[in-house]
Nucleic acid binder design. Structure first.
Lengths: 112, 112
DNA sequence: TGTTGGCATGCCCGAACTGACATATGGTTC
DNA sequence: GAACCATATGTCAGTTCGGGCATGCCAACA
């Protein structure tokens, strides 16, 4: 990722609170949009995986990755790239259209 | 990115021909979907930047990156991550919804 | 209680990505 | 042609990310 003023942000991406992020930190709109986007995808990944009754280990195998990394992906860990995130989504069977839907879901703040 | 059997693929991502990729190479469906996705985004980035009458150097400044890297992003260079690609799209003013549209655009083979 | 299974966390270090620079190509204007 | 601008391409040192292992946590259950 490498975002120059990578100061505080480090804390955020794994502090949750979906619909905010930039509120209590000096994030630019783009930066905020970006991490919220990742969190939204991470969340839908876990949802989808469970719906498929798949374990993290099984998914890891498909990705030629490891259980621990899958856990980090779902947790929205800052060391996880969008690349791996999206490839994971494809691996649990999501189509481009479905992924797009999650991304568009956008400025929605809470699930329930 | 790091895709285990990163064999030939190297050639593809910068060989273009939008609607194919996996056709003449042994790519899995997911792998193919993934790089086509990146190419679609890369293409719409250039389109959008030009529409904004912005130069690569200007965009690079916003991203705190360099002109040469922006060029690679738009070219769909294999050394460019989805992260940078998406952050670039946000930097040229695209909304999540617009990005989603490009992604959903999906299995379309040719433009005109 | 001991065991098993699924998930989370920390770490290492090799692989991939990044910014920056140098340089090349192509177009425009004088 | 020279000067200038936007873009393309190659390279590389420094940073980030990746797989995988070790380990911790917790719930289920016999």
């Amino acid at each position: 990722m490498n975002m120059k003023p990578a100061k505080k942000k480090r804390l955020v991406s794994r502090g949750w609170v979906v619909g905010s992020a930039k509120e209590f930190l000096g994030l630019s709109d783009d930066e905020a949009a970006f991490i919220e986007l990742k969190l939204a995808l991470a969340h839908s990944l876990k949802e989808r995986r469970l719906k498929q009754r798949m374990t993290q280990s099984q998914l890891a195998k498909r990705l030629e990755s490891s259980q621990s990394r899958v856990a980090k992906v779902e947790a929205g860990d800052r060391t996880v790239s969008l690349d791996l995130l999206v490839r994971s989504l494809l691996a649990v069977g999501m189509t481009r259209r479905e992924i797009a839907k999650v991304i568009a879901g956008g400025t929605r703040t809470r699930a329930a």
